[in-house]
Simulated scan of single mutants.
Amino acid sequence: MTVFRPLAYALLSAPLWLAACSNDNKSAGNANLEVRLMDAPGDFRSVVLDVRQIEVHTLDEGNPDGWQTLPFQAQAINVMEYVNGRSALLVDTDFAAGDLKEIRLMLGPDSYVIGRDGQRYDLKTPSGQTSGVKLKLDKATLRNRETYQLLLDFDVAKSIVERGNWNSNNDKKERYLLKPVVRVVAQDIKGSLRGTVVPAASLPQVLAIRSSITVPDTFSTTADASGAFQLYALPSGTYRVELYPTTSTPTGQPTYKNKTVSGVAVLNDQSTNLGQISLN
């Protein structure tokens, strides 16, 4: 039998800054905003960005009052780890419904690359350290109780430029400039997952764990008194669904058991129905 694993453990078992939060209890009047980072491969072993802050702009371009800081823990991110469909979840938060005009990454001075030669080269950032890397958004509208995702596609090959006058006798710190080329993919996330458990009296906790990415996202809910459950605003991908009964089995009845359903496909704009799931 699978050992019972409560929600707190499931969420804390992955790095906090990459773990998605439950999406089933969004505040009234708010949407859910995700910011993710992925990479187009480049000819380096590592490309580490010193990301200090992430902001979005909600007013017309040029209005200095429109910038809002998102909840984000400053960190060094090796973007080379997020290729071939993998992505890093940087922000997952409630945000007031409305239009987003721009997103801005504030970079610190400690970005660097590890070349194919195994050497570390510091990245000089002409503008990112002061005004930040600004990216315009086209038709990014957040709606109440819906999830909106901003995917930042970082192009390593175009973003890291070797200085024209550099040679092997120069200081390694002066070899490369960072001139970020980032494509923004903005999308509503409207996949959903539903099913029914029996016996309904088991009142299980339901975890939907997106296993098709490097660090799995975890979404949660609880089946109601009729045994029905549903999770909304799920990103498309392959999920593992885990169910854990929260009540004791009545005397004389078959024991409630934990259940895992693997390989569950969730598609955008579609509802995946798992049907009836027995916990006996």
Rank of each mutant, 00 (worst) to 15 (best):
R5A: 09
S22N: 06
S22M: 03
K26G: 09
L33I: 12
V35Q: 01
R36I: 08
M38I: 05
D39I: 00
G42S: 12
F44R: 12
S46C: 07
V47P: 06
L49A: 09
D50P: 04
R52N: 05
I54T: 10
T58G: 06
D60V: 11
D60G: 13
E61T: 08
G62K: 13
N63P: 02
G66Y: 05
T69P: 05
F72C: 03
A74F: 05
Q75M: 14
N78P: 04
V79N: 00
V79A: 05
M80K: 14
E81S: 14
Y82S: 04
N84D: 14
S87E: 14
L89P: 10
D99V: 07
E102F: 12
D110Q: 12
G115M: 02
G118F: 09
Y121D: 09
L123Y: 11
G128E: 10
S131F: 03
G132D: 10
K134M: 07
K134H: 04
D138Q: 07
K139C: 04
R143F: 06
T147L: 15
T147K: 05
T147I: 04
L152F: 01
D153G: 02
F154M: 07
D155V: 13
A157T: 02
A157S: 03
E162L: 03
W166Y: 15
N170Y: 09
D171V: 02
K172M: 08
L177F: 12
L177Y: 06
P180Y: 03
A186D: 05
S192D: 01
T196A: 02
V197L: 09
A200R: 08
A200Y: 03
L203H: 08
V206N: 08
A208W: 07
S211K: 15
S212T: 13
S212N: 14
I213Q: 07
I213E: 01
T214Q: 06
V215H: 11
V215C: 06
P216A: 10
P216H: 14
T221M: 04
T222Q: 15
Q230N: 11
L234Q: 08
L234E: 01
T238Y: 00
Y239N: 01
L243R: 06
T246C: 06
T249N: 04
Q253V: 04
P254G: 01
Y256E: 03
V261M: 02
L267S: 15
Q276S: 04
N280T: 13
